[in-house]
Design a protein around this nucleic acid. Sequence first.
DNA 1: TGTTGACCTGGAGTGCGCTCCAGGTGTCAT
DNA 2: ATGACACCTGGAGCGCACTCCAGGTCAACA
Lengths: 121, 121
Amino acid sequence: MSIFYSPGEVADKFGFSLDTLRYYERIGVLPRIDRAPSGHRRYQASDIEMLDLIRCLRDTGMPIDTLRRFAELVRAGDDTARDRVALLEDHDNQLAAHLELLLERRDRIRHKIDYYRSLGS
Amino acid sequence: MSIFYSPGEVADKFGFSLDTLRYYERIGVLPRIDRAPSGHRRYQASDIEMLDLIRCLRDTGMPIDTLRRFAELVRAGDDTARDRVALLEDHDNQLAAHLELLLERRDRIRHKIDYYRSLGS
DNA sequence: TGTTGACCTGGAGTGCGCTCCAGGTGTCAT
DNA sequence: ATGACACCTGGAGCGCACTCCAGGTCAACA
């Protein structure tokens, strides 16, 4: 039960590139990652948990800058829980709106497909 | 019952900027738009119809390059109907996959929110 | 007739989110 | 001890989809 994950393992696990993992750390979306004596990064459980959430948030369109603000709240400690909830709820609302838009657009695209079909064979 | 729409009207109607409308024309997402004697563009019904679809496709993440391929099929005439349907269906499938992903991510984000709530007040 | 506002052109610039690169170090199997 | 391979750094580069700019034209109204 190794407590640490290598950069390669993490990259595989979440589908981020090594460059992206370093980039996220550099700009503060990830905290400063622990290092082995060799200088190699070793990600730990809390990093994994954060990356899992980052994956969700990025996939749903949260901008990097907002992600960083979220990460800063996490680093600032437990008494920012309310702010974090607010931020996530805000994102959830935007996501809901976006989903609604996508469904409406899909409907219209499907109508267009039906229309093209009605013309051809 | 004016048959033509000014650039400003079209921009308002679809939420594209004037620059974007010109850009789309330049790169072939829109056909060469008809001009008034003054040189000003005048969009007509077929352009409006196309823009309506472009709005749907862009909003649902179709890349500009694919959009241009679609526009080329439209310009190539009626016997490309089958290809157009194929392209749109392909997009519809990708959209379905994307929606599924978004719903799954949303679920996890909501769980995270609940978790934060269970900690705080 | 003068001014305002919408529009024109070709081309350069922007913001986002990575992605690549050169040159170097660490680890491990043969 | 020699490769092969994973990883390190700082900094430059890239692709996408616009967006902005300078310098000009046109139409309409006061």
